[in-house]
Design a protein around this nucleic acid. Structure first.
Length: 604
RNA sequence: CGGGAUGUAGCGCAGUGGUAGCGCACUUGCUUUGGGAGCAAGGGGUCGUUGGUUCAAAUCCAAUCAUCCCGACCA
């Protein structure tokens, strides 16, 4: 008999501090279904529901059934162990956050409808926390007094609430989800950098233990505000973000599209073009239409895109063959809840119908006020130095040709506002082309800076007794997303294929026992596995063999062991490896040794 | 919020004005038993909700709610 302490550090019993790494179907039933759910579009959603890991309660809200809960806890536990190893401290903040804190940081008004808000009986406003920068900064200011207490990295694993515009793809985009969020506080930039690098390493370790292949990319820090930022993406066709990767592996540039600078081709020098003039384009409005009319390339056009929100009108001019990066414009201008400008706004701005907007002769200049909104005029930096371009004439039915920036109009604000795309030159090596892939974000680390500490009055005394505003870092991981993407990456047409570190149990033990001898052999094996620290789920349902085989493959534990008449007759047990489908006939002790060996090899 | 679609039994679906059905699941019995068993007998639905048209509505009309898909937010 093999008797050892459980080798499985993140086992169910370790997670729950009570030992039952073994379970039987009579105690913990399966929740599998033969039908695919009608509302599932993607593999992880379909399989997790069908295999009985999760069940939908309402749009974007999921119940974790026992198997799903176990996997979820295992991921949490891996995160805990790694965060602890890298020096972070676990706390647990309330899910409910008072409006007061959000008002202090100024985010009560900018978080928008995504934040779920409510009032208590005293009419005091609260939100269900979509994130916890404010709450954690509030905690920090309550106990941080000296630079000697820094750095400190506090984390929690808890539910977050975001009233998503469109919940989608099962666990991948929910309204309630579990997130590990950590916030670090530092006396100086160097200390923040050190922790940031530790977290980069920590995240790599976490995802590796989860058996998840991630692509770390440079990212946009979005509404959080901050500088350095890295996202951990899982490559997937259903990914909602576009990543740009340098085709030269040596260069290794990888970034979120929103962050990737557009490196344009250098402008060919052209002799001074003739003076600009209007020409009749009638009903033709788009770059493509006018290009077809004139025989010019879209690259020789100035495309206008006008965005507006409640406070601003932003007029953007970009090369005609490119798309505007709304993310870049948003970061530059601070637009909130914006949309393409309405026809009314365009008419006021240009004196013409929409479709004829150009940089020459706008009715409002940068900084002026239109309908109580501030006008911003932005030029893509690649327009400078170009000559002889075509642009809207701000006159219905007309465009201008021979338009030359600098000569015919002044470029006051110039920036990179074009979206990079596949085929562009890599902004890092400037040699190779970029390629595109889609990804799902499972983790995000970034340097927050002093924004929250400043707004919320978090200070400590430095060595000379002066007040010092700590600088912060912030590090998140979506637990449910990690679970779902693990399934996205590891499944086949029969079901899920769990990594041993995430599987609810290692072994799915199928009892096909009809005779007493078979039954006792199965029981004996069950106990031996249990005692050897090999977690095992015994399917002892009164079902046909086929049903059990199908369910075993659907729920996806890494090892399937079958005990029936054949085992009693031959003395050998049948071990099926879920991933490869390979079948091995082994004697009991050998079986246990083999399983431990294989599971360990896959485990870190 | 804009555009599209769908709400009928636990799940998946059919049913275009005249007695509410099918497959799976469920209950009971007999047979069967290493890849989603067979036979027999059962149980289960205010047809999302409200209102309207009609002798008669799951079916036609209106409103409303919910869910899903396509676009803007994010772990």
């Amino acid at each position: 008999m093999v008797t050892q302490a459980p080798l499985w550090p993140n086992s169910l019993h370790a997670v729950r501090n009570s030992g039952f790494p073994a379970m039987r179907s009579s105690q913990l039933p399966l929740f599998t279904s033969k039908n695919d759910p009608a509302d599932a579009q993607v593999a992880s959603h379909r399989l997790l529901v069908r295999a009985g890991y999760i069940r939908k309660q309402a749009s974007g809200l999921y119940t974790y059934l026992p198997f799903g809960d176990i996997v979820h806890r295992k991921i949490e536990q891996i995160i805990r162990e790694e965060m602890d190893r890298f020096g972070a401290i676990e706390v647990s903040l309330p899910i409910i956050t008072p409006a007061e804190l959000w008002q202090e940081s100024g985010r009560w008004d900018i978080m928008g409808k995504e934040m779920m808000r409510f009032f208590d009986r005293h009419e005091v406003a609260y939100a269900l926390g979509p994130t916890h920068e404010e709450a954690m900064t509030d905690l920090a200011r309550s106990f941080l007094q000296s630079y000697r207490q820094l750095p400190v990295n506090l984390y929690q694993i808890g539910r977050k609430y975001r009233d998503e515009i469109r919940p989608r793809y099962g666990l991948i985009r929910c309204r309630e989800f579990t997130m590990k969020d950590a916030y670090s506080f530092h006396a100086d930039e160097a200390s923040l950098e050190e922790t940031y690098q530790k977290m980069r390493e920590c995240y790599r370790a976490i995802f590796e233990r989860c058996g998840l292949k991630t692509i770390p990319v440079e990212a946009d820090s979005g509404t959080m505000g901050g500088s350095s930022s890295e996202e951990f993406m899982v490559a997937s066709a259903i990914g909602e973000e576009v990543l740009l990767l340098c085709s030269d592996a040596q260069c290794g540039y990888r970034a979120n599209q929103e962050k990737t600078p557009y490196v344009g081709e250098p402008a060919e020098p052209i002799a001074e073009p003739p003076a600009m003039e209007d020409f009749d384009t009638g009903e033709l409005k788009t770059v493509e239409q006018v290009a077809a009319l004139t025989g010019k390339s879209p690259r020789d056009f100035i495309k206008a895109v006008v965005l507006e929100d409640a406070q601003k009108v932003v007029v953007c001019f970009i090369p005609g063959d490119r798309e505007l990066s709304e993310a870049k414009v948003k970061n530059l201008t601070g637009l909130l809840d914006f949309a393409p400008a309405g026809a009314e706004t365009i008419r006021a701005l240009t004196g013409a119908e929409p479709g004829f907007t150009g940089p020459v002769g706008l009715k409002f200049a940068d900084g002026e006020t239109l309908n109580s909104k501030t006008v911003h005029v932005l030029f893509d930096r690649h327009l400078a130095g170009r000559t002889g371009l075509i642009a809207g004439a701000n006159r219905t039915g007309f465009h201008k040709k021979n338009v030359t920036p600098g000569r015919d109009f002044v470029i006051k604000n110039s920036a990179d506002i074009v979206a990079a795309r596949a085929g562009d030159l890599c902004p890092k090596c400037r040699q190779s082309k970029l390629t595109e892939t889609r990804g799902i974000e499972v983790g995000h680390i970034f340097k927050l800076g002093k924004k929250y500490a400043e707004k919320m009055g978090l200070t400590v005394l430095d060595a000379s007794g002066k007040h010092l505003v700590p600088t912060m870092g912030c590090y998140g991981i979506g637990v449910g997303r990690t679970l779902a993407t693990a399934v996205e990456q590891n499944h086949d047409e029969r079901g899920i294929i769990w990594h041993p570190n995430l599987a609810p149990f290692w072994v799915y033990l199928i009892s096909l026992a009809r005779e007493e001898k078979e039954r006792s052999m199965c029981e004996e094996l069950y106990h031996k596995l249990k005692q050897a620290g090999v977690s095992v789920y015994l399917d002892e349902r009164d079902e046909r063999a086929g049903v059990k085989f199908h369910d075993a493959e659907l729920v996806g534990f890494p090892f399937i062991v079958t005990v029936g008449k054949r085992a009693v007759e031959s003395g050998k047990l049948e071990l099926t490896l879920r991933r490869s489908g390979e079948k091995l006939l082994l004697e009991t002790d050998e079986l246990i040794t083999q399983i431990r060996k294989m599971a360990e090899a896959k485990a870190p």
